[in-house]
Design a protein around this nucleic acid. Structure first.
Ligand SMILES: [Mn+2]
Ligand SMILES: [Mn+2]
Ligand SMILES: [Zn+2]
Ligand SMILES: [Zn+2]
Lengths: 126, 126
DNA sequence: TGTATTATTGCAAGAGTGTCGCAATAAATA
DNA sequence: TATTTATTGCGACACTCTTGCAATAATACA
């Protein structure tokens, strides 16, 4: 399915870019000035994930958050890194901390979802 | 709030014991022969978590799973371990693999939730 | 530029998960 | 046995995410 460029898609990506954090659908909707339908935002986000533009984090609040895959390929902050959810400022950010584990080979690992929750450094030092 | 012993609570714990896996409310409800109200099961599970009998895992399907805290204190399979969600057999199990990370001290980590998703060793070797 | 194709969107509805208030019930204690 | 109050079922709610359908609009191509 070939993608088309739309104002909606650009707006979603631009909000995520500006925040530098992982954001939920509702957070994105609040940050966008124009009115975009909830379902549409979800569809856009899901497409971006399929295309490897975004990655999806399911936090321990059970909700989905989306972040731009900046360094997902090149940097050492590679495919699998921890995420931090701050309960004070209610943000989720990608940590430079890699996720390490070793399982016997008969496990097939397809997704890694690691969340640390607590108070982020900005909130704890103020 | 002092706890009381009820058939419901025992049934929930016994199902979790028998399975040896982490289970969701709906999975528990299906496994219990008697009819127990959904809300009640959730309340029982939440109480067990408060009391340190169970621990709660939020999987990357956004749902809550509950597992018995066997080795949570004594064993090396300590407080923070990985969990594996198999998409074939739809089970979640506690792995003996510990979660390691090092953050700067100004982060306050209160919860650790690490899920690996894929195909478990039972399903991949058959 | 005009037209056909089909990806995108809004809307409404639905499925699923988890919580909460309230009144009825029953476990624990004296 | 009588009292206290934890537990339960029920209903309702909030919330997240998805899906079908018809209308719209981006893209490619004549
Ligand atoms: Mn990330
Ligand atoms: Mn566990
Ligand atoms: Zn914070
Ligand atoms: Zn399996």
């Amino acid at each position: 399915m070939k993608r088309r460029n739309t104002a909606t898609k650009e707006a979603v990506l631009s909000v995520l870019n500006a925040s530098g954090k992982a954001m939920s659908q509702s957070a994105i909707e609040k940050k966008i000035n124009v009115d975009i339908n909830r379902a549409t935002i979800y569809r856009v986000l899901n497409n971006y994930c399929e295309d490897g533009i975004l990655h999806r984090i399911v936090a321990d609040d059970g909700r989905q958050y989306f972040a731009i895959c900046l360094e997902c390929d090149e940097d050492r902050k590679s495919l699998h890194h921890f995420h931090f959810r701050c309960e004070k400022c209610e943000t989720i950010s990608c940590l430079p901390e890699p996720v390490n584990f070793s399982l016997s080979n008969d496990y097939i690992v397809e997704k890694v979802n690691c969340i640390l929750t607590g108070v982020c450094k900005d909130c704890s030092t103020s």
